[in-house]
Structure formats: structure tokens, C-alpha cells
Simulated scan of single mutants.
Amino acid sequence: MNSEVSVVILTYNESKHIKRCLERAFTVASSVYVVDSFSTDDTVEIARAMGGEVYQHRWPGNQAAQFNWALEHLPITTEWILRLDADEYLTDELQDEINAKLPLQPDEITGVSFKRRHIFMDKWVKRGTYPVTLLRLFRRGKAVCEQRWMDEHIHLLEGKSVTFEHDFVDHNLHNLAWWTTKHNGYATREAIELLDLEYQLIGRERDNGGLNEQASIKRSRKKQYSKQPLFWRSFAYFLYRYILKGGFLEGKEGFMWHFFQGWWYRTLVDSRVYEVKKACGNDPALIRDYIQRNYQIELSPKKSLVEV
């Protein structure tokens, strides 16, 4: 256990995952804070029984706003903060690496990135997308979460980041029906992100400073992706992952992962974008109004993310 680290976990109905997550979190942290959005299962009871400090806060509509609320309101006093999702956990090797290396980091290092290992249908899909490197550990007061509807990253306010050698794991235990329902919801938020890139619906700054190298590259590629023709781009992305990056070598689970997450989901996003453009043309004001009326999401120019 590292007395310099606190872990923050956002939850809603995570009884399948929270015990596994907390068990691993407590190996590197002196405190684990669970910010729960009024779960209706026994997530809160499990977290408290395991020693987690539970705070409840109404879901504001996106991960970024909820996590930044946690940074502002939790009584965190440790030097470092680690963000984890409830369906994620640290490998044994990463636990040891954090405990050994973190106390040795010089003052100019304010963030640490890890490689994410994705488990889909109980299989580690190694080819096609791995490794995705994410900044998840940072010095208190030196970072915030980007205000985005999807694909939000931890953003360093100052200092530099390093990347540790070992992985953390994203392994959701729900079935495929749950997974597709969840991504159907994600598609609306992803469509808003792509429309915002094209029409500046919110008018946010598009500076990638403070992101780790891979996140900055990914963000630049996303801007390029947003300029490609609808529907063709999702098919091309699937071919890139499944053929060029070797996803076809991962068996049936690999095919389903790359098909659903790389093509089906991206086509669903494009369908949302097409639907909005067909109804509104290229008028940003009409697009904002359409999104609010149909998805109950308010997009106010030059303001933070708001959901009504």
C-alpha cells in the first residue's frame, strides 16, 4: 500500500465489479473514494464493507463532469490521485510497479500513464487496438478531466508525464446484450462530439496540450476521421483494425470485438450524425435545438457540458 495515493471510482449499479476493483486498488492506495450516482443495487454496501469511502452525487450526464466534481469536493489529502472505472483493475505487476516507482518520481513528473488491457468475452484481445495508453495517475491539483461528451482524458495543467511498463485491465462482466445497449447510448454522445468538431456547437478550445503523447495522436486522428465520408469511414476503420492490425488472428471473440466496437458502433454513430444533418442541414443553431429536443442534452456555446 502506498500512503501517497488515493483512488477515485465512479459507480452506478456496479455490484458485479466493485469488489474486484477495490481489492486491487487498496494494494496501492491508502484511501479509496467511491462516488456513486444513487445505485439501486448493493454497490454502496459492498464498497463500504470493503473500506471504501462512499459519497453520492447525482449523475451530471457525463464522466468528465462527475470526476471533476469529485476532485473539487472529496477530502483528498494524498500527493497522488488514481482514477479507475469500477470494471477496471490493476494487474499484480502494475501494483508492484506503482508501489516501487511512484515515490521515486521527480517533482516535474505530475502524471503517470498506463497501458490498458481489454478483456472481451473473457479473452484478452491483443491485436487490433492494444495497447491504448491512458494517463490515470496524477499529482493532486495538477490535472483535471477534459470536458467532453466522449473520449475524455485526464489533462495535465502543468508538468510532464511518464509511462509505466505494466497494464491495468478493462474487463466488464456483463453480457453482450448489456454491452450493445450501453454502446447504443454512447453513440449519441459520440455523434455530438463529431458534430461539435465540424460545427463548433459548444465553442470549446481544441488545444491538446496536457495530454499524453498517444492521446494527442488519437485526438488528431479523430479530427481527421471526422472529415471523412459518413459510413465509409466506419468500414475503413474496421478494416484497419481487423486486417491491417491483425485483429483477425484473435478468433471469434476478436471478430466480435472489432466488428461491434470498430464497425457496428461507429456506423451507429454515423447514423446519428446523418439523422441530425438530414433534419437540420448545416445550421449549428438548429442542430443544438434538435439535440436538446430529441436527446434532452443542452449544448450551450462557450459553456461547460450541461444535461437537462
Rank of each mutant, 00 (worst) to 15 (best):
I154D: 00
I192G: 06
N99S: 06
N68T: 12
D170S: 13
S226T: 08
H155A: 06
E158K: 13
I81A: 13
G111F: 05
E14V: 10
N282A: 08
V306P: 01
R233F: 05
Y89Q: 04
Q147M: 09
S3P: 14
I202P: 00
A187E: 07
E205S: 15
L94A: 09
F26M: 01
Y265N: 03
Q261G: 02
V34M: 01
V7S: 07
P284C: 13
W263S: 03
V273T: 03
V35G: 03
S31P: 00
T133R: 15
V35R: 12
V5Y: 07
W124G: 00
K222I: 00
D122L: 01
K218W: 03
R139G: 02
P301M: 00
W59Q: 11
G61S: 09
P106Q: 06
A215E: 05
E190Q: 11
L134D: 02
A191C: 04
I291Q: 03
L135N: 10
T91E: 08
L201K: 13
K218Q: 04
W257M: 12
Q63L: 14
R20L: 09
Y240D: 14
A29C: 01
F235W: 07
S161T: 07
R136C: 02
A279R: 10
T181A: 14
C280G: 12
Q56P: 02
D283R: 07
G251F: 07
N68R: 10
E253T: 15
G51H: 12
I18S: 05
E4Q: 14
M121H: 10
P229F: 10
E108H: 15
Q296D: 06
A215R: 01
H183F: 12
Y186F: 14
G141H: 05
T267Q: 05
W257K: 15
D107H: 14
D289Y: 07
L305M: 03
N184C: 03
K19L: 00
I192M: 10
I154W: 01
R221E: 08
S3Y: 06
I81G: 05
L10V: 08
M150V: 08
F120D: 07
D42H: 15
I243K: 09
Q66A: 15
W69T: 04
Q261L: 02
G61P: 07
S220E: 12
L244F: 10
Q56H: 05
S271F: 11
E79I: 08
S39M: 07
R293I: 01
N172T: 04
T27D: 09
V273L: 03
W263P: 00
W80I: 12
T78E: 10
A187S: 15
P131H: 12
G262T: 06
V162W: 09
K123P: 00
R219Y: 09
L201T: 10
S15T: 05
I217L: 07
M256Q: 13
F114K: 09
Y225E: 00
V273Q: 05
R241Y: 02
T181Y: 06
G246S: 10
I98G: 07
L134G: 00
L94Q: 08
M121Y: 04
E190F: 01
I202V: 12
S220A: 15
P229V: 09
L137R: 13
F26R: 08
